[in-house]
Design a protein around this nucleic acid. Structure first.
Lengths: 192, 192
DNA sequence: CGCGTGATGTGACTGAGTCACATCACCTAG
DNA sequence: CTAGGTGATGTGACTCAGTCACATCACGCG
């Protein structure tokens, strides 16, 4: 499979991150990124659909993992338990060694609207996929949308705390704690 | 204020919508849109930040209306009542005469990922603004995020039904009905 | 050793988005 | 009635994202 210097995509991601941090996102050219990785612009676009996507590589597996967790959850699980299963799968996708990378990437994304837009889109794609998986498990559509939203919201809340503070607990713990907070707040807010 | 032929922005929006429907979004050039509106490409970009934005003009007032409704709600209102106030303000922003336009615009957006991404971003911007307005009214941050999500979700659910079926009820009614469904589902899902 | 395959390079091209500068309609002060 | 002033538009040139057809090169396999 691999020939030439292997790891082209990884080199492109690293080069992009360094240049974005140093020069800013808009001031960095896809040709510059490719050159720093020892490649050309055309090859950059062979690995990423567009310039933004270089910071979101690997998120593709999130949807698969989350939906697989819902599909494979225990028979008879309550809707919120299915959501928790999706949440655990999402949290398990990021090894502790990559926490520092997450921090750096998050800082770049937060600084540029164009990238925040893509981040929000990715988030909504995950939520939609989880909601579909929930309805496939028999959860009614409205409840599925809400449970998926809770799970994804817990995931991003936990992820942000994990990335923001290297001394914070593990990602799965932080995500579970966030889900507990959300469930409590939701119950209190919707009580009549 | 106005000189030349007035209504340049409206002409651009109408031209863009017609061309997008006829040729597709990607096959349509900003120069084509401008020409059809009797203008030039440069003027197009004086009215819209980018090509996508031409289909989202006017959404800027949604945030102002929704946050103003929260700011001005009755003293002592419960969090969900504040959310309902934001929802009513959002629903009131679309006169019945524009239902057909909403249907057409929605069809174009739904057919192109690039536009769906922008739509999701707009939605999240509204939700964030409402959440901020809620925290400013003393609602705790986690609950504010959830209530804002419920309100915005009710708004989009109602809006989609309103745009999808010209015989469906009024937008405010559809949005309120959606909020009722969501509250019931949320209460049932988060019950222990 | 020759051949197929897959990743990369090359060069040219389209179109989004920006910018400096010129122009023209309208309004207002004198 | 005229001279600026203002704000919206036009013009032409430019950068860069993203695409494409075609050439090239490394590697594995028969």
């Amino acid at each position: 499979m691999g020939r030439w210097e292997p790891g082209a995509m990884e080199r492109l991601i690293a080069a992009a991150l360094e240049l974005f941090e140093r020069q800013g996102y808009e001031a960095t050219t896809t040709a510059q990124i490719a050159e720093r990785a020892g490649l050309t612009k055309t090859t950059f676009f062979r690995h990423f659909r567009d310039k933004r996507e270089v910071l979101f590589a690997g998120q593709g597996v999130l949807i698969e993992r989350a939906t697989a967790a819902v599909d494979g959850a225990a028979h008879g699980a309550a809707p919120l338990d299915l959501g928790a299963a999706a949440l655990d799968a999402l949290a398990a996708a990021h090894p502790e060694e990559r926490r520092a990378d997450a921090t750096r990437i998050g800082a770049v994304i937060a600084a540029h609207d164009e990238l925040r837009e893509r981040a929000v889109f990715k988030r909504s794609a995950i939520a939609e996929a989880v909601a579909r998986a929930l309805t496939a498990r028999g959860v009614d559509a409205v409840a599925a949308g809400l449970v998926a939203e809770l799970a994804v919201r817990a995931y991003y809340t936990g992820f942000d705390r994990w990335a923001a503070d290297s001394r914070a607990g593990s990602l799965p713990e932080l995500c579970r704690a966030a889900l507990d907070e959300l469930r409590a707040a939701a119950a209190s807010v919707t009580a009549r």
